[in-house]
Amino acid sequence: MSEINTQIARVSSNRTALARRGTAVIAKRGLDDLVSQENAEVWFQKAKKLYDAVPKNLPITEFRASLGEFFRCLQRAADLDPQHPGIQFWLGTAYRDGLGTERDIEAAATWIRRASEKDLVEAQFQFAGMLKYGEGVPEDGSAAVGLFRKAAEQNHVDAQVALGVAYGDGSGVGKDLVESTHWFRQAAEQNSIIAQSFLAEALAEGKGVQKNLGEAAEWYYKAASQGMATAQFMLGKLYYNGLGIPEDLKEAEYWFGEAAEQGHKEAKIMLEVCLAGIDRKTMQEVARKRGVIAQNERAGGPGLTTKK
């Protein structure tokens, strides 16, 4: 009886000893991990500082060449803490853009993917782009859309635009104008100029949303006043024709002028029209007359051009 008790006591004390040793080992590993993560953070911060210190207006080859130390610090950081999403993303970006190292698109894809799996939103957006265009990974449109959506749902504005575009032309996902317009609106509300212009277009044409020229004009105005030539031209057209907003030749002239200054061809023509004082009514009259003349011509009557 007492022998059994002794045996039980021995087994249980062996187990306790095993657990004590295990606990000590586990504590040491956790602490070592934390210390090396702290050190990794130090190298990471140093790398970022070095990156910030390099003037961004250097010629590109010189810019890349002056990032050698930056890249070495980043590598040290990744060695110490290979799970750190920020370090993973920066390292991937360095490989992709050849910052202080040879460009290596496969290595770039590997590191940026790791960061994107850790829910780093910017990495999700970037890796989605790599999937879409097959950079360093096999092209995969539907996986790209999946990641664009993940980032878009976390309010990444460029991902929202990309998702709107994907739904708009059905690339990697079934074409769906309602979804497309929904995502353009999300991005437009975050002040993305391109999304504001896309949304205005959808509203003007009733694509995936109830046609609403007044609201279209508002979004065109937002993009136009931030300097987007297409939006300036479209806003000019709405003023010229009095669509969604009261007809206003002076306003039309102003916006056509802004777009023309940026080299917008149709805007240049319309600017001439406005400067000549030809408003919508006059223009319509001309067009109507032209129509009549053309009809007459076809009927063999007097036309604008002299017959041979």
């Binding site: 187990r15 306790t16 095993l18 657990a19 004590r20 040793r21 295990g22 606990t23 080992v25 586990i26």
Partner: peptide, 14 residues
């Protein structure tokens, strides 16, 4: 051995 130690620590009384 390390796996056994870790197991008894993680699932023991402590």
């Amino acid at each position: 051995t390390q796996a056994e130690e870790a197991y008894s620590a993680a699932h023991g009384e402590a």
